[in-house]
Write a protein that binds this DNA or RNA. Structure first.
Lengths: 186, 186
DNA sequence: ACCTGAACACCGTTCAAGT
DNA sequence: ACCTGAACACCGTTCAAGT
């Protein structure tokens, strides 16, 4: 990449991070280009779709989430691992407003820049869920897609001012539904 | 209302019902006015905000939901009543795409044309929940706002093509979490 | 009273013209 | 190679001018 191109790319990304943090995933691309002091065409050259731009903004955090899945699996009991990771996954959806809708759309679109990352998150969750199920600690009538749906639904609640205050408590309620109480040791 | 005004009002409403059913709550008002063969200003005269228009489209169904709450309460056991009504409430959010976001926004805005109706739904749910709780059939650490949040979250899942297939099953999973198993009679 | 549509301030997206 | 911004086709919202 040419030096001037690289500079524009970085500038757009930096400004986009700010604007998206303020206004969410549907922030005006025109506004981002303007604040980045870059032609609108330049933004489109580097990021052919809105999702391509947001994908870069999310990549670091998503990679971290995957890394943490491995860590947690290695260090926690199956039930605790499932819950801890699920909590992190919900927290990830609060990177900025609209992440959850973005994920839902990406899951349904093979061509989305975010499709692979979202599938990875689902796979990580499925693995932790299966581990808890095998240990007899999680109910067996749900799968990775169900888990991701629940995480997304809880993430959506957090995006709504009127429902957000309930999200943390409802996470616990739903967690209760997923886990099977461990019988007390004698 | 003058006869010509009434005719325009009805025409806009009829067309809006169609267009919103097809495209969801964020359908183009311009498009609705065009298809209704009415000036854009006429649409705004009769429905000063988008919510005012959607409120009329939802009123019938919402009133029905309230009526059914009373029926169900009168005829069903407390736990069955809670579940049956909750299922209807989720179904209501599928009147058209975007109802759930509309409700979330309306709950947070006293001035919304939908605020009163949404509060009513929450109150109906709260009543049925309390009845089940008093009968020892529902867990006591949730309230009407929690129930509405769960209903909205399940409604949101149904709006997402990638998550919708899970919604029915997840309703049952969450229902399990809300209800307390009735002890078998001896 | 009511209707109309132009006017204004925004979008997203594309692409010819420039360096 | 890369950048620019005008151009196009859309929005929502308001309001002067008409009947």
């Amino acid at each position: 990449m040419r030096a001037d191109a690289k500079k524009n790319y970085d500038q757009v990304l930096a400004v986009a991070a700010e604007v998206v943090a303020e206004q969410g995933a549907d922030a005006s691309l025109r506004d981002i280009a303007r604040r980045a002091e870059v032609g609108l065409g330049t933004l489109y050259r580097h990021f052919p779709t809105r999702e391509a731009l947001l994908e870069v903004l999310l990549r670091t955090t998503m990679d971290e989430l995957t890394r943490k899945a491995t860590d947690i699996e290695a260090t926690c009991a199956p039930d605790e691992a499932l819950l801890t990771w699920s909590r992190l996954a919900v927290a990830f959806t609060h990177t900025f407003r609209g992440v959850v809708d973005l994920m839902a759309t990406a899951m349904d679109d093979e061509n989305s820049a975010l499709h692979a990352s979202c599938t990875k998150v689902r796979a990580d969750g499925a693995r932790l869920l299966l581990r808890a199920q095998d240990a007899g600690l999680a109910r067996k009538d749900i799968d990775g897609a169900d888990l991701l749906s629940l995480i997304a639904a809880l993430g959506w609640l957090n995006d709504q001012p009127s429902f957000a205050p309930r999200a943390a408590h409802l996470f616990d309620v739903i967690a209760d539904a997923l886990l099977i109480a461990k019988p007390h040791s004698p």
